[in-house]
Simulated scan of single mutants.
Amino acid sequence: MSASEEELIGHSYTRARKHPLVIGKLPGAGRLPGGPYTITQVMTMVISFGLLVMTRDLWAHFGAMNFILMALIPWGLAWVLRYARLDGRDPARAVRSLLIYSSTPAQGRLAGKPQRAARPRLATATCTVRVRSAERPAPAAAAKPVPQPAPAARRKARPTPVPAATTAGRAEPKTGLQALLASLDEH
Results as ranks from 00 to 15, higher is better:
Ala29Ile: 04
Arg96Pro: 02
Gly76Gln: 05
Phe62Arg: 06
Leu8Ala: 08
Arg17His: 09
Ala171Ile: 10
Tyr13Lys: 04
Val95Cys: 00
Glu7Met: 13
Ala140Gln: 13
Thr167Arg: 15
Val131Arg: 10
Arg85Val: 03
Ala157Thr: 14
Ala29Ser: 04
Thr166Asp: 15
Ala168Val: 12
Met54Phe: 01
Gly34Thr: 08
Gln148Thr: 13
Glu6Val: 11
Lys144Glu: 10
Ala3Ser: 15
Ala71Gly: 09
Leu86Gln: 06
Thr38Glu: 05
Ala60Val: 05
Lys25Pro: 08
Pro91Glu: 03
Ser2His: 09
Tyr13Ser: 07
Gly88Thr: 10
His187Lys: 14
Ala117His: 13
Thr175Glu: 01
Gly28Asp: 15
Gly30Val: 05
Pro36Glu: 03
Ser12Val: 09
Arg136Cys: 03
Leu86Asn: 05
Glu7Trp: 12
Gly88Val: 02
Leu8His: 09
Tyr13His: 07
Ser12Met: 05
Met1Lys: 02
Gly24Cys: 01
Gly24Glu: 02
Cys127Met: 14
Glu172Ile: 14
Ser97Leu: 15
Ser103Glu: 04
Gln41Trp: 01
Ile73Met: 03
Ala94Met: 13
Tyr37Val: 05
Arg17Val: 03
Arg136Phe: 08
Ala165Asp: 11
Pro105Ser: 01
Pro20Asp: 13
Leu32Tyr: 01
Ala118Phe: 08
Leu180Ile: 10
Ser102Ile: 04
Trp75Ser: 09
Val146Gln: 11
Glu6Ala: 13
Glu186Phe: 06
Val42Arg: 02
Asp87Met: 02
Asp90Arg: 08
Arg15His: 01
Pro91Asn: 02
Ile23Gly: 06
Ala134His: 02
Met54Lys: 11
Asp87Arg: 15
Ala118Tyr: 01
Asp90Ile: 07
Ala165Trp: 08
Arg170Phe: 12
Ala117Lys: 14
Ile68Asn: 07
Arg96Leu: 04
Ala92Ile: 12
Ala3Thr: 15
Leu184Asp: 09
Tyr101Ile: 00
Leu32Gln: 03
Arg93Ile: 09
Pro33Trp: 06
Glu135Asn: 00
Tyr13Thr: 07
Val129Tyr: 05
Val131Trp: 04
Pro91Arg: 01
Val53His: 05
Pro163Cys: 03
Gly24Thr: 09
Leu180Arg: 14
Leu177Cys: 02
Ala165Gln: 06
Asn66Gln: 11
Lys174Met: 10
Ala94Glu: 05
Val42Ser: 03
Thr175Met: 05
Thr126Ala: 10
His11Asn: 06
Pro145Leu: 15
Ile73Phe: 11
Ser183Arg: 14
Gly28Gln: 10
Pro137Ile: 06
Glu172Trp: 12
Gln41Cys: 00
Gly28Trp: 08
Leu32Phe: 05
Trp79Pro: 04
Ala164Lys: 08
Arg96Asn: 01
His187Cys: 06
Arg93Asp: 10
Ser133Trp: 15
Ala16Trp: 12
Leu8Asn: 11
Leu26Gln: 04
Gly34Cys: 00
Arg170Leu: 07
Ala16Met: 13
Ser183Tyr: 11
Gln41Glu: 06
Arg56Asp: 02
Ala168Thr: 14
Glu186Ser: 08
Leu99Glu: 04
Arg96Gln: 05
Gly35Ala: 03
Ser2Gln: 13
Gln148Glu: 11
Arg121Ile: 09
Trp75Leu: 14
Thr40Cys: 07
Ile68Val: 09
Gly176Gln: 13
Ala123Tyr: 12
Pro173Tyr: 11
